[in-house]
């Protein structure tokens, strides 16, 4: 059984089925891709998984436990971390403070439950400051650590969101277009980081438009169109799929 599962996940906005009957399996230790054209329902699926939206139907389970009735913050405490397509950084604070807030909030609630070991520290339990420094460094944000996030370019702000999400030591990480706004070398670096995190045992669900990146890091890809899963498989399989080609490029007229 996969670490994170959705079964029959659906949501209706007015008369419009934005997400319809979506079954996803996100395995620990792997990067799973979720791709599809604009408006296909990818971000909505993220919102349903982490509890920002309530589904009109279907279930979400984490490690076999139903989490569909829990609030957003309770799901986060069980280990679901995420980033946002439309940035949700704490723009009036510095990069370091953004990550620190995440770590502090985690420290606040982790007292009541067991805490996962940090993914990036090779063994040992670093102090709060050490952990924050580690995250800032690993995302290549060292040079801008004391810059206000509101004045950073999009790409770097996205990296801040990733570092912040990692600060709560999640078991599942939902990444919503993390590479948009990054240059080639930054994207490359991010890809390596994702693989590394997955190797350390994290389950990553990646929404991304940079298809080469998806092909490179994902072991399994789901393709969403009109709120439905229209294909799934290995990156190569999906790439060859004609339905997917049509969904992306439209049928030739």
């Amino acid at each position: 059984m996969a670490l994170l599962e959705t079964r029959g996940l659906s949501i209706r906005f007015g008369g419009h089925l934005a997400v319809s009957d979506v079954d996803l399996d996100v395995e620990a230790g792997l990067v799973t891709g979720l791709i599809g054209p604009n408006g296909a329902g990818k971000t909505t699926t993220f919102n349903l998984i982490c509890g920002v939206l309530s589904p009109t139907g279907g279930r979400v389970s984490l490690d076999g436990r139903q989490i569909g009735s829990l609030g957003t913050h309770e799901r986060a405490r069980l280990g679901i971390g995420r980033t946002f397509q439309r940035l949700e950084v704490f723009s009036s604070m510095t990069v370091r403070e953004n990550v620190l807030v995440g770590a502090e909030i985690r420290q606040g609630w982790a007292r009541f439950g067991h805490s996962e070991p940090p993914l990036l520290a090779a063994g040992g339990d670093p102090s709060l400051d050490e952990e924050v420094d580690l995250l800032v460094d690993r995302l290549g944000l060292g040079p801008v650590a004391d810059t206000r996030v509101g004045s950073l370019p999009t790409g770097q702000a996205r990296l801040v969101e990733i570092a912040r999400a990692l600060a709560i030591r999640p078991r599942v990480l939902l990444l919503d277009e993390p590479a948009s706004g990054l240059d080639d070398s930054e994207t490359h670096h991010l890809g390596d980081l994702m693989v590394q995190l997955a190797t350390a045992g994290l389950a990553i669900l990646l929404v991304e438009h940079d298809v080469p990146l998806v092909m490179k890091v994902c072991s399994h890809v789901f393709v969403l169109d009109f709120g439905q899963v229209i294909a799934s498989g290995t990156p190569a399989e999906v790439q060859q799929n004609e339905t997917v080609q049509a969904a992306y490029l439209g049928s030739a007229s």
Partner: peptide
């Protein structure tokens, strides 16, 4: 700055 981000951090 962002209530929704805080919630997804477990606050």
């Amino acid at each position: 700055d962002s209530p929704v981000a805080c919630a997804t951090l477990g606050l």
